[in-house]
């Protein structure tokens, strides 16, 4: 292929290529593109719009610096009042206690005069519990012996 033939082929290729591109971009497409370009240029100098954070719902008081200080002072005052009140409970004698009627029906043990329910012993209850414990032990010994035989133990019995 000579240079002239190559040049003629490339000229034809150029014409065909231009026609192909023009087929994709008709006058309407060009106009649309111009509008897009101008729209982009119109927004060039504008800064980004800052959207406000969602407003606090009605009824909620916004916490300002002054309010935050008042909350701190109130918390400290509450703590002090609580401590003082706790000390006064022990210092001031109380004529009536809520649990006094209960203690009057139950005889407190001599060693622990204060009301401590978990450690108080009652003769009637002790007897009842002993009977229950004995019944359970006897029942397990007679009826659960087979199961007890099958249960593995960590240490030899």
């Amino acid at each position: 292929m000579s240079d002239q033939e190559l040049k003629a082929t490339l000229d034809a290729y150029r014409a065909a290529a231009h026609a192909e591109a023009d087929a994709h971009f008709d006058e309407r497409a060009l106009e649309t593109q111009r509008h897009k370009i101008l729209a982009r240029l119109a927004h060039l100098g504008q800064t980004a719009k800052v959207i406000r954070f969602p407003i606090v719902p009605h009824g909620d008081v916004p916490i300002t610096g002054v309010n935050r200080r008042w909350i701190s002072v109130a918390a400290a005052a509450g703590l002090i009042i609580g401590l003082l009140g706790g000390q006064l409970v022990h210092l001031v004698p109380q004529p009536t206690r809520r649990l006094a009627p209960m203690t009057s029906t139950i005889a407190p043990s001599a060693e622990r005069p204060d009301f401590v329910p978990a450690l108080v012993s009652f003769p009637q209850d002790d007897g009842l519990l002993d009977e229950v414990d004995f019944a359970v032990q006897v029942r397990s010994a007679s009826e659960l012996r087979a199961l007890d035989e099958l249960t593995p133990f960590n240490e030899p019995r």
Partner: peptide
């Protein structure tokens, strides 16, 4: 525009 589109498309 036209020339630019031809070049860019090719």
């Amino acid at each position: 525009q036209r020339r630019a589109l031809r070049v860019a498309f090719q």
